[in-house]
């Protein structure tokens, strides 16, 4: 942080109100786990690395394929066939070799989630199914680690921040992931491979997710806790819906 090149690298943050030198030091001290190095994971990782997050964890068992490059902008043509976590690690190092990167070239599941999630300041969800999001959200709730969660499909996406172990100003617990999304029946959830995804959609949602991480780390603004952002890039519309945990005793 003290090196002159560091002051130059983060000069636009250091002069920025509500970030400044202290905020940049928080960013450098932060440990952020990104689960999924695909469509959402790509902009999340690039912006977190550019911002100077000091330690970044990567979880993904997949390899880069040609059909990924339309949206997974952290990977290049010459990375096709490589593990996504290794391709992403190299991209992060090209931006800033001072970032420590922890690789988990495995698929997150109920058996390994607690161990993977342990010890991080913030976890970011860039997984590719709602089932995996439930597993990740449950593990983050047990670990009491803030989770920045988003999903994309076709021209659309959503984003929210989950801290269900905390209570809000009304004294009520914050909502859990299951208070946002219903658990889908087996085989019901459409995938990007089946119905498609406009490449810029995860670009927009992943960039907004990276902003939520920086809000949590630095402390500026209000994180999207108890709020669901819905993005429609077909017509271009942003809606923010307030939501809460079910009322006690409410059977619905």
């Amino acid at each position: 942080m003290a090196a002159p090149s560091d002051l130059e690298r983060w000069a636009r943050h250091i002069v920025l109100r509500d970030v400044g030198g202290p905020g940049q030091q928080k960013i450098r001290a932060a440990r952020v786990l990104v689960v999924g190095a695909g469509g959402l994971g790509s902009p999340i990782l690039l912006y977190l690395a550019a911002a100077g997050i000091g330690t970044i964890g990567l979880v993904d068992d997949d390899r880069v394929s040609l059909s990924n490059l339309q949206r997974q902008v952290i990977h290049r043509l010459e990375d096709v066939g490589r593990l996504k976590v290794e391709s992403a690690r190299d991209a992060i190092a090209r931006l800033d070799p001072g970032i420590a990167v922890v690789l988990h070239p495995i698929r997150l599941d109920a058996a390994n989630a607690d161990a993977i999630v342990a010890g991080w300041d913030v976890v970011v969800d860039g997984v590719d199914t709602l089932d995996a999001r439930f597993v990740l959200a449950d593990a983050c709730e047990r670990a009491r680690t803030p989770l920045v969660s988003s999903g994309v499909l076709e021209f659309y996406g959503w984003l929210t921040v989950l801290e269900p172990w905390k209570t809000g100003e009304d004294g009520r617990p914050n909502p859990r992931f299951r208070d946002v999304v219903r658990r889908p029946a087996q085989g019901r959830q459409p995938t990007c491979a089946e119905v498609g995804i406009l490449g810029v959609v995860p670009g927009v949602l992943g960039t907004l997710a990276a902003n939520e991480v920086l809000k949590l780390v630095v402390g500026y603004g209000e994180p999207l806790v108890r709020r669901l952002l819905s993005v429609d890039l077909r017509d271009v519309g942003f809606d923010v819906l307030d939501y809460a945990a079910p009322d006690p005793g409410d059977g619905s």
Binding site: D128, G151, Y156, P175, D179, Q189, P246, S252
Partner: peptide
């Protein structure tokens, strides 16, 4: 608030419906 499909609606209420986007 998240509701189930058997929730009976009251006068003036708004319902927001999202598909599975995962």
């Amino acid at each position: 608030r998240a509701v189930e499909v058997d929730r009976v609606l009251d006068e003036g209420e708004a319902i927001a419906i999202f598909p599975l986007v995962g």
